[in-house]
Simulated assay, not measured.
Amino acid sequence: MRRLRPVELDFARSAPLRLAFSARLGAPPATVYAALAEDIEGWARWFTGVARAVPTDGGAGRDVRLTGGTRFLETVLTAQPEALYAYRVDRTNAPGIRALLEEWRLTPDGGGTRLRWTFAADGPGPLRLALLLARPGLGRAFRVSARALDRRLAMANSDS
Rank of each mutant, 00 (worst) to 15 (best):
T56F: 08
P16L: 00
L129I: 15
Y87D: 05
D39Y: 00
L9I: 04
A15Y: 01
G49R: 12
W117G: 01
M155R: 15
P55F: 09
A99N: 08
D10N: 05
G58I: 14
V89S: 13
F142S: 11
L153A: 09
F21D: 10
E38A: 10
V50Q: 09
E41G: 11
L84C: 12
L129E: 11
L17G: 12
S14M: 03
R105P: 03
D109W: 03
A154K: 14
T31W: 00
G125Y: 07
T31H: 01
L138K: 05
T67M: 03
T75W: 06
T56L: 15
L115K: 01
A130W: 00
A20E: 14
L129G: 11
W104I: 03
Q80S: 12
A94K: 04
P55M: 06
L77S: 04
W117P: 04
W117V: 06
T118R: 12
N157Y: 07
A146D: 05
Y33P: 00
L115A: 07
D90H: 07
S22C: 13
V32R: 03
F72M: 13
P108L: 03
A60K: 14
L4P: 13
W104L: 01
L129R: 15
T107S: 10
F11G: 04
R65P: 01
R3H: 14
R62C: 07
D90G: 11
P6M: 05
F47N: 13
G61R: 09
P29R: 06
A148K: 12
L4N: 13
E41R: 14
P126E: 08
A130P: 00
R116V: 15
A99C: 07
L19K: 00
L100N: 10
G68H: 10
V7G: 11
A53I: 11
G139I: 05
R3G: 09
L25A: 05
E38R: 15
Y33W: 14
A27R: 04
T118N: 07
L115D: 07
V89F: 12
G112D: 02
G59Y: 13
T78V: 14
R91H: 15
A53V: 09
V89T: 15
L84G: 02
T48M: 07
L9V: 02
L153H: 12
P124Y: 01
A83I: 01
G112M: 05
A15W: 01
R88L: 09
A141N: 14
M155G: 06
R135S: 09
P28K: 03
T70Q: 12
G137W: 08
P126W: 14
D109P: 04
L138G: 08
L25V: 02
P6I: 01
D63W: 07
A120V: 12
F21I: 06
R62Y: 10
L66Y: 12
L106S: 06
A99W: 08
